[in-house]
Simulated scan of single mutants.
Amino acid sequence: MAATQILFLAFLAMTSSLATASDPSPLQDFCVADDNSEVLVNGFVCKNPAMVSAEDFFFSGLRMPGDTSNPLSSKVTQANVAQIPGLNTLGISMARIDYAPGGLNPPHTHPRATEILFVIHGSLYVGFVTSNPNNTLFSKVLNAGDVFVFPEGLIHFQFNNGPSNAIAIAGLSSQNPGVITIANAVFGSKPPISDEVLAKAFQVSKETVEKLQAQFWPDNN
């Protein structure tokens, strides 16, 4: 009986730690992602350390302003494991976000990461919404030098409410945080979600849903 209880408690401890974990901790100095491997794992297979170079840990893409000439007037330049193979297993990534006046990084979530946003230039109105049942909005106007945190998995947004361009840098607690843009996912899915389902969910007519599904949903990533 005592042995059974010990095993049960060990199982609870193990599952609790798994439930609260984000990206796994590394077990070696580095595990540079091998994009050419045909092996599928949760993450990326390690490149042979003898083949690793400084370039695997380098990315110059954040030095250039993003192209904001799109319907959202914003551009996200990501710096995650897809751009920096050396981030594999390290549990961290970055992004640069450029906003023209009136530019919006629309409501979205990062399913695998908490985000901390640092405003370099300009002014941003930002916020996130808590989960059911309260759906409380926490929002703030940020200026250059300000920082704001978006908890993992929660819907959040940034809007340039100032007269000039704005720039922000985001730090994310995953090598591959993922992004789900709400409007794109709901109304731009392929194949589309049933208009009957969406009409009932949003309490609108099927005609309204069909109009939303028919329009182009821009992507600023």
Rank of each mutant, 00 (worst) to 15 (best):
E152N: 12
K140C: 09
S25K: 12
N134R: 13
N135H: 15
N135K: 12
A3Y: 08
T68L: 02
E38S: 13
M94I: 01
F44I: 00
N165K: 09
A199L: 11
S123A: 09
F58K: 10
D195Y: 03
Q28S: 15
P26K: 04
Q175I: 00
N80I: 05
A214D: 15
P151Q: 11
F202P: 03
P107M: 05
L117G: 11
S17P: 00
A166T: 08
V186S: 05
D98A: 05
I97H: 05
T68I: 13
M14T: 06
T130S: 15
D29I: 02
T130H: 09
L7P: 00
P218S: 08
I180A: 14
V197Q: 10
S74K: 05
A10Y: 02
S139R: 07
D146N: 14
E55S: 15
I116S: 08
F138K: 13
S139V: 00
K47T: 06
S37M: 12
L12P: 00
S53P: 01
F30C: 04
H156P: 05
V149D: 00
R63F: 07
F159N: 07
G127P: 07
T208N: 12
D35Y: 13
N184F: 03
N161Q: 05
I6G: 01
A13D: 03
K190V: 14
A199F: 11
R96N: 02
G178V: 07
E55M: 07
N132Y: 09
V186A: 12
S73K: 15
F44K: 10
A183C: 04
V149E: 13
L104H: 01
F8M: 06
P24E: 06
I169C: 05
P177Y: 04
Y125T: 08
A95L: 06
I92K: 09
A13G: 13
T20Y: 09
N105C: 02
V179T: 14
I116N: 01
F157N: 06
G43R: 03
S74H: 03
A13S: 11
S194G: 08
P151W: 10
P85R: 14
P106W: 05
G178K: 06
D67M: 01
P111K: 03
L7R: 13
C31E: 12
A21C: 07
I182F: 09
S205V: 04
T109W: 03
F159C: 04
S174Y: 07
A95W: 03
S139H: 14
L212A: 15
P85C: 07
G188H: 08
P218E: 11
G102P: 07
T130N: 10
K47A: 01
D56R: 01
V32Y: 06
M1P: 09
P133Y: 04
K200I: 09
F118Q: 09
F59M: 07
G86P: 04
M94D: 00
V209W: 13
V126W: 02
A168S: 15
G171N: 12
V204M: 12
V197W: 05
V149C: 12
V141Q: 08
F157I: 02
I97R: 04
A199S: 15
L18I: 05
L117R: 02
L7H: 02
V129I: 14
A54N: 11
P218K: 12
N220V: 00
